[in-house]
Design a protein around this nucleic acid. Structure first.
Lengths: 220, 220
DNA sequence: TAATTTGGCTGACGATCATCAGCAAAATAC
DNA sequence: GTATTTTGCTGATGATCGTCAGCCAAATTA
């Protein structure tokens, strides 16, 4: 990633929070608070401008943390992106857990209801996070990248199960994969193209999308 | 965009090809050739690494053009991205023109056939170009960005017409917009997520996608 | 209140990058 | 074969950015 500008610093300590520097901040609550500030600002900026063009100074201005202090709370710029993803992954798997359908999905109506909740949720909750996840992935290390990919895959598999349950019959597996992929894909990417649906109200888009998908299942 | 590192150069000329420098290359064929080299290399690199992290040196290495010479053929780094888009837009509108359906789309079968051609084509032809178009848009100036957006919009409108013709009846306009948008969206973005469909052969994905869409039209 | 610790912040270092001036080499003209 | 134009390329310039050492103030402790 950014191999540049990495002077070697002598006398580093490890505070168990992942920060390495010649001194450590003792007040853990403060560390948490500042780190949260930094990540929040970074999320906003990375989303808007992208990781590489966002400067540490930008982050400092947006978060109110002084450039001199910033390195007391995060390891380096790359670390900020990594932390952000950790947070997101945790968040979104929590969310996903919370959004395991509250009812058994045994018919199309149940599927429809759940789909509406799930899509609606993913659209309103984290448009920018998702955009971040898919656009800035390339700047992450291999492991984090793979985590994201497997999360995606897992989600696809869940939808395959739900769809099959809703239809209540055996279906062509290969087609099922494709459709479930399209579904997850739409979830993730529509926020990115907010301008596509500009002028239409969210609710109508949501309805149209859900009905379209339900009908589309007829191809299975 | 990159407001940095822009020393003012005295005594500039304009060669009518958009290059401004203290001297101009006389051999127009050479200019064309070198520029093509540069753009080809840039396309490859921007696609793989992204615009901001690709350095001029990278482009020089990949293209074989010397860093000292490069500025004889393009204005600056931003210009390279802009040129690339111009090229792509020209290319793709040519392609789109060529792919105006060869037959009247008066029923679902004709639509199905055309959809297969169009999607298949857009998937095989320019996965990386499309990725470029959508991921690096934010680094372009407002005008170029708007060009792209309106090309997209235009395409959506065409599909709205074709779909309506295929169905041969009046349909809910708002839903139609959504579906056409989804279609164009899928066109553009699936190549990006090549890994989604990894392990499945293109042809099956294509079939499943088309059939899914055709069935989905039932929601109109 | 004095001594000590802890955190905020100024200023600087080293690295990289885009850009280009000026010279060497090649090509062309004479 | 010399003179002149045209292109290739070395080397430098200015700007920015990530990173951090070290000084100062505030807070805590004694």
């Amino acid at each position: 990633m950014s191999e540049k500008n990495t002077p070697t610093s002598a006398e580093q300590h490890d505070d168990g929070l992942g920060i390495r520097r010649y001194r450590q901040i003792k007040n853990k609550d403060l560390v948490k608070k500042r780190r949260a500030q930094i990540l929040e600002a970074a999320r906003k900026l990375f989303t808007k401008k992208g990781f590489p063009v966002t400067t540490i100074q930008d982050i400092c201005e947006e978060s109110g943390v002084n450039p001199g202090s910033l390195y007391d709370y995060v390891q380096n710029k790359d670390d900020i992106l990594r932390q952000l993803f950790k947070e997101m992954m945790g968040e979104s798997s929590e969310v996903r857990a919370a959004f395991v359908p509250s009812e058994e999905i045994n018919d199309l109506d149940a599927l429809r209801r759940y789909m509406r909740t799930a899509i609606g949720h993913s659209w309103t909750f984290s448009p920018e996070i998702i955009s971040l996840a898919y656009q800035e992935t390339r700047f992450l290390d291999q492991t984090t990248k793979q985590e994201i990919m497997s999360a995606d895959r897992e989600l696809i598999e869940r939808w395959m199960v739900w769809i099959k349950q809703a239809l209540g019959r055996e279906v062509d597996q290969e087609r099922l994969v494709v459709i479930a992929s399209l579904l997850v894909f739409i979830f993730a990417f529509l926020p990115l193209k907010g301008w596509t649906t500009r002028g239409l109200d969210q609710d109508k888009v949501l309805n149209a999308t859900v009905e379209f998908f339900i009908k589309g299942l007829g191809s299975l």
